[in-house]
Amino acid sequence: MKVELKIQRFDPVKDQEPHFETYAVDCEPTDRVLDALLQVKGLMDGTLTLRKSCAHGVCGSDGMRINGRNRLACKELIQSQEQPIVVEPMKGFKIVKDLVVDMEPFFEKFRAVKPYLINEDPPPAKERLQSEKQREKFEDATKCILCACCTTSCPTFWADSEFLGPAALVAAQRFIFDSRDQAKEERLDIVGEKEGAWKCRTIFNCTDACPRDIEVTKAIGEIKKEELFRKL
């Protein structure tokens, strides 16, 4: 089928402002939006720039705005898109070129919540025991692939770039609720600050944007609840 793509372009060397360019490609209805973009890049205009890797929704490279919503280009099929398919970079980070944004501030926020298991006890000879019930408390958050679709769909983050943002909060939830972790209080201090969980206005854009179907807003809500109860 014929597909029209309207892609936001920006070359920092030549352009003052981003602009749109339109391309017509021939695709199977079951092709991914990523396939259409790569057809443009491979056969029509090699300067089109985007990140990509696994092409099936598990590596998190190709987050972008597709018809106004943050999505992974490799998880969206052509047949389910309205045409023209409008493709833009994620909002809220500096555009490096075309669909590529500067991810450094994103990973900086991630690192800020101490996103790693902290347990200073000497490990046992075998595994630490954990029940399925205990694991289920943080399982949803472990699915995160750090694609930034949630954070860059958050109006609070657009308005305040200091906000930790949903992805970092999900990472915090993952460890706060892990029965093996010993740094819950330390993490609750970090995400209880003014740029942390309380900045969330429960707009649910993050939950809508998550390509891994993580209940992001719910995870942030769980952090808020934990903050409240520890202050009582």
């Binding site: 399925e132 694991r135 892990d178």
Partner: peptide, 8 residues
């Protein structure tokens, strides 16, 4: 021990 959430 490093934190991997295995099924149990």
């Amino acid at each position: 021990h490093l934190g991997l959430p295995f099924n149990r």
